[in-house]
């Protein structure tokens, strides 16, 4: 496998291999010396066309712990309008002799476009409203860490599913592992994804009943006033996660959020900090999962 462009393109076996490999890397992260020489001599470029501190930092740490040389290339999309084309940017970067390109872009399909035009391994760090595969992998890793497996679990994904690449990648992944997926949110923000066997709930109280895990999604403030929902107040009232609602889920249900959180909009502050919250575990696991992905993608140039 040369690239990781999306969960859609992965088989269940490969996902299991990544998650198992990530376990070993999580052990590495517990050592005093957290760096291994596995990818010594390899060069990685983090090509971010969309601002992101968290994902970029997580990737950068994963890359450094694998002993790669890291190059950060941040291009705000607005300046690209006047500047060179994506194709030229990517070809230039390839000419630097990089082995991995970690790409985030506001347009869906850009990782596929790049992967088809370079020999380097391409890792999708989030493209438009398409996918964010490493987030789904780290979410699955975090759930398995707490629950033992994904099989038979009831998992609620709450919020703006329509525009969420995190939700999409999670739906693709979880549907492969026999998970009962519930989508909860306003009808304007839930697309038709019946083919993945999801259940849809507009009523959050009903949707949270007996779930094992609750994945909250970040609500994009820009959606307000575009007719998706009238106000953040109304949103929080109907689809915000507070302590009262958390009690509807199973007693040991875990609460997840890909960050950054809007406290008081999609998640109440006390929920974010409660013992059931695994939000900070997700951050740690993100590094292990990204190390596993980079390790498993062969960096060999002529490997197709």
């Amino acid at each position: 496998m040369k690239d990781l462009v999306g969960i859609k393109e992965l088989s269940k076996d490969v996902i299991e291999l990544i998650l198992n490999t990530a376990l070993s890397f999580k052990d590495v992260l517990k050592r005093d010396i957290k760096k291994v020489p596995a990818l010594r001599g390899k060069t990685v470029v983090n090509l971010f066309f969309e601002p992101s501190t968290r994902t970029r930092t997580s990737f950068e740490l994963a890359e450094k712990r694998l002993s790669t040389d890291v190059l950060n290339f941040s291009v705000p999309t607005s300046s690209v309008v006047k500047g060179e084309s994506l194709f030229d940017t990517v070809k230039t970067i390839e000419a630097y002799g990089v082995d991995y390109i970690v790409i985030r872009h506001s347009s869906s399909g850009v990782p596929h476009f790049i992967a088809g035009n370079v020999n380097a391994s391409v890792i999708n760090a989030g493209d438009g409203t398409n996918e964010h595969p490493t987030q789904a992998l780290l979410d699955a890793f975090s759930i398995i860490e707490k629950k033992g497996s994904l099989d038979g679990l009831r998992i609620a994904i709450v919020g703006d599913i329509l525009h969420s690449r995190v939700a999409k990648s999670n739906i693709y992944l979880l549907s492969m592992f026999g998970t009962n997926i519930r989508l909860i949110g306003p009808s304007t923000l839930i697309p038709d994804m019946r083919q993945y066997g999801v259940e849809v709930f507009y009523d959050m109280d009903e949707g949270l009943r007996d779930v094992d895990a609750i994945m909250m999604l970040r609500i994009q403030m820009e959606r307000q006033g575009k007719g998706f929902f009238p106000s953040t107040q109304e949103y929080f009232k109907n689809w915000g996660l507070n302590m009262g609602r958390l009690k509807i889920a199973k007693r040991d249900a875990i609460v997840m959020h890909p960050g950054p959180m809007n406290r008081g909009v999609e998640i109440a502050s006390d929920v974010a900090d409660c013992p059931q919250s695994v939000i900070l575990d997700q951050v740690t696991n993100g590094i292990a999962v990204r190390m596993a992905v980079m390790y498993l993608l062969s960096g060999i140039k002529d490997n197709g």
Partner: peptide, 11 residues
């Protein structure tokens, strides 16, 4: 617009 646009993440 349809399930394919959702899956591809294209508007």
């Amino acid at each position: 617009e349809g399930s394919l646009s959702t899956i591809l993440g294209l508007k």
